[in-house]
Write a protein that binds this DNA or RNA. Sequence first.
DNA 1: AACTATGATTGCAAATTATGCAACGATGCT
DNA 2: AGCATCGTTGCATAATTTGCAATCATAGTT
Lengths: 253, 253
Amino acid sequence: MSQSLLRALDLLGELAAGPASLDELASRATVHKTTVMRLLHSLEEKRFVVRDAQQRYRLGPKLFELSSLALEQRDVRAAARPHLAKLNELTGHTIHLAAFEGSDVTYIDKLESRQPVRMYSRIGLTAALNAAAVSKVLLADLPPARREAIAASIDYRKFTERTIMTPDALLAELDRVAAQGWAIDDSEHEEFVHCVAAPIRDASGHVVAAASCSVPMVLLDHEGLLALVPPLTACTEAISQDLGWINPERNPS
Amino acid sequence: MSQSLLRALDLLGELAAGPASLDELASRATVHKTTVMRLLHSLEEKRFVVRDAQQRYRLGPKLFELSSLALEQRDVRAAARPHLAKLNELTGHTIHLAAFEGSDVTYIDKLESRQPVRMYSRIGLTAALNAAAVSKVLLADLPPARREAIAASIDYRKFTERTIMTPDALLAELDRVAAQGWAIDDSEHEEFVHCVAAPIRDASGHVVAAASCSVPMVLLDHEGLLALVPPLTACTEAISQDLGWINPERNPS
DNA sequence: AACTATGATTGCAAATTATGCAACGATGCT
DNA sequence: AGCATCGTTGCATAATTTGCAATCATAGTT
């Protein structure tokens, strides 16, 4: 589509793993060293990469700038922050905030566990559509047609023995999630971690994000995890209210 | 220099001001709408931009990802320097700072011993994955799968009689290191030198670097070396705190 | 100090790739 | 239904990008 651009973006991805010299980048890429160099010079001109004293390239300040601006643009995040912090305080476990970015579910915020055993994740990563609790919550709110279309097109990667592997099973699970108002990932993504997630709605009533609580199984068994659901839903409802949502089940006046 | 790339990077700069439609971007830029569209499609493919339901473009999750990765690797070295200097002052021995650069462990800083007997090493050199204390510390924090993959693929060079020579032995040692929070190299790399190393963590809790203290055996016996562990871990914890890490074992309130 | 090795840079010719135009398609509004 | 707005595509032109080979810079070595 746009070769040089795609190659340059891949270079940025490589540099995310750590600083690298021109030669290192050129050998990892499938293009000539000269080409890599010229792309890097352009990236450098726009401050997307910088060169240190040893002429090693690393990601540049422009990326930080863009990233923080982009995050600010997402106001769900700002609204959710204080509530998620309270939940994190209360439970001590890892809290994630996720939303659709285009067609994948992306983590847009994270609060670290205060436990010594932590789970691995990072803001910006995408969540598996057939396994993550946040994905289930977000999918469950889509109109049936979209839901089915997505269920049919997913790449069903098997993460653990319990991972949902068929469109039918996924759709059934989504019905359950929609009915009960929250979702569980019962070690469907990582063998030793389970999570619960709940929806965040805006004034229109649509689910705009999902918050989740992820806990290593060594710290909490199934029952213990389910005990997190009430504080979690209390938290997501509080965020939803801040976004202008009115709980239809309360004051049905 | 590289026209299409420069134009695409400018588009990202424009989007930093807020979401925009294709036409808006095209009119702000000095190029044809078609061109803008094709650049955006490439950016979208790599998740640097996303399109919402109304086909407005906004900055994408890949930017968050790159930026948070880059922040993690940002100036550990600068943060560590003053603390390492104090440790060097206190002990008088050689201090190393090491981190993953791609797939090998690299020394990223060094403070010389003030003793007449010195060890040879240099910033930028790579540490043996199966022998160096810093490597053990860094490997011990990786997720089990990565750890095992690396253990299986290492070239087990035999440096001394005590060098770890099998994946199983290495993995067992890494478990020990993870549990006790520091690592020892008991003359496994050089016959007459032994070291201790401890992890440096960032705000996310992940180990981003390792600091070590290397001592010729003629200067310090095994017990003497172990006596260096408390000042070493105090040092690495101080650095970790500077990087935003919060000790989960302190104030578990 | 000269030599060697490693890595970065540039001139140039070939051609792949990006560009702009114009026509087409999709979507929403009156 | 018709109109308007905006996104998308086919194609010919030409301009940008590419890879090679030669040159330059730097650091390490004898």
